[in-house]
Design a protein around this nucleic acid. Sequence first.
RNA 1: UGCCCGGUAGCUCAGUGGCAGAGCAGGUGACUGUUAAUCACUUGGUCGCUGGUUCGAUCCCAGCCCGGGCAGCCA
Length: 462
Amino acid sequence: MQRTLVKDALNATAPSDAILLQGWVRTRRDAKAFSFIELNDGSCLKGIQVIADAGLPDYATTIQKAHTGASIVVEGKLVPSKGQGQQWEVVATSFQIVGEADATYPLQKKGHTHEFLREIAHLRPRSNLFGAVFRVRSRMAFAIHEFFQKRSFVYVHTPIITASDCEGAGELFRVTTLHEKQPPLNEDGTVDFKKDFFGKKAYLTVSGQLEGEIFACALSNIYTFGPTFRAENSNTSRHAAEFWMIEPEMAFCDIEGDMSLAEEFVKYLIRDAREHCAADLEFFSKFVDKELLTRLDFVLERPFKRCSYTEAIEILNKSGKQWEHPVQWGDNMQSEHERYLAEEHFKCPVTVYDYPRTLKPFYMRVNDDGKTVRAMDLLVPGIGEIIGGSQREERLEVLRENMAHHHLNEKDYWWYVDLRRYGTVPHAGFGLGFERMLMFVTGVGNIRDVIPFARTPGTADF
RNA sequence: UGCCCGGUAGCUCAGUGGCAGAGCAGGUGACUGUUAAUCACUUGGUCGCUGGUUCGAUCCCAGCCCGGGCAGCCA
């Protein structure tokens, strides 16, 4: 007999004389003449209720050994439930324990803290919360591809190992095969990286953007979706050392088109989650963040706000708020400022654009005022920056000036500069933090709880 | 990395300078178309680690480790 997923059994439109279910026991309640077993297989949030009659063979030795956490195979009949709380239930005709779980099984019927579950990351996907989180994660990954593929964006795999050390070496993870204690040395005693695997220092990527630009300047519209690594010693609920990032890049596109795509993208994902992860989202709304559904729907219904950095500074200074960090034009906006804009002033996602040139990297396109660049950040309530992007500097001479300003060696970026030398085009793109998007969609407050196995400073378990 | 808070039973937490507590989970029994079932009884402890103060420290002090919140870096 073929296995039926719990999801499909619960969605059945007619009873069935024979059904095969496989999964894990969530809870069992014994009555005198029979036993109720809640079976969950992760295919959906809910489990299905199995009724095992005490007359079944080996009732005492199998069914009554089916403790929370045990894996089981049940054959039976799918029938309308006599009890409240579920439409269908399964009356078992045979019941088999595949793997027992004893009393030390850490997951209980009651709720656990996120912190405790994080310590048992090998078992937490079996909990309601994390099952839901990772189903949504899977769906969102699919929706991301769907969004771009529908728009004829080409999926590009940018490298995970990179040898350009020009992006700020302190924040990169080094990749090396050199001997820990006795690396080859130069005559002056420094390590001879020419002898390393790649013949030079190598790192894990912090962004696929520069390589993405190469492909956009050939295939027009591209996106990347892959792991990204930052060695910053960040200890917050929204930073991880390893995370996934989506980076679209569009040729013949300016900052306006870039912002429009970003806003459309975020809305698309929220709408997709609302439509395809309804039960899981309702669960989050009930147990994680009561305001979740209201907020998501609010975001869907309204156009995102846009405001220039200059306007944002004015808003902040006219707000009458006492800032812990006072701001004036030219300063980086702090968390408290970004939060105020998204959560209090606009009360919706807001895209801030045209930042001071001095605050931003060399590749962003300089505006005609000479003081600002075509950068944009999309800020969302509760999380802050979820997207950072820009129009790229496509003018060869301006780019070279910028590189000089940032003390970058043009030779290290010869291929990047070449894109401006041969058939240059205005182009733009952004990076969306996948986990931050998941935090927004699920209401889960810690990035460690929307990634299967979090890597943060001091922690790389599992 | 900085500031703040915390670490006591498997889990969530209370507590005290002088015999270590509750609820839940687990075990036993009863009861029940139950559904975080209910009722009775019951097992369970290196009070994060190391040192100090003290007649005596889980409690006070110091250092360290771990977790959380906030900030910076950013996505």
